[in-house]
Computed example of a mutant assay.
Amino acid sequence: MKKQKIEISLEVFETISELPKDIQELMNKAQQARENAYAPYSRFRVGTALQLASGEIVLGSNQENAAYPSGLCAERVAVFSAGANFPNQTITSLAITVRSENHEISEAIAPCGACRQSLAEYEQKQKSPIAIYFMGETGEIIKVASVMDLLPLGFDAKYL
Rank of each mutant, 00 (worst) to 15 (best):
R99S: 11
Q51V: 08
E104S: 14
S100Q: 08
A82N: 10
I57F: 12
E107A: 09
A78I: 03
E101L: 14
G55S: 10
A108D: 10
Y68E: 12
Q63S: 04
H103D: 13
V77P: 09
H103Q: 09
S70A: 13
S81W: 00
A78V: 01
V58E: 04
T97F: 01
G55N: 08
N65R: 03
L50C: 11
E101V: 01
L94W: 00
Q89A: 15
F86I: 01
A108M: 02
A108K: 05
T97M: 06
C73E: 15
G60T: 02
I91H: 06
P69M: 01
E104N: 13
E75M: 06
A67Y: 15
G71M: 03
G71D: 00
V79D: 02
E104Y: 10
S81R: 13
Q63F: 01
Q89H: 13
T48R: 02
T92W: 07
S106L: 05
T92I: 13
G83F: 09
T48N: 05
R76N: 12
G55I: 04
N88H: 13
G71R: 00
A49W: 11
S54Y: 12
L52S: 06
V98R: 05
E56R: 06
T92Y: 03
F86W: 14
S106C: 10
I96V: 11
G60Y: 00
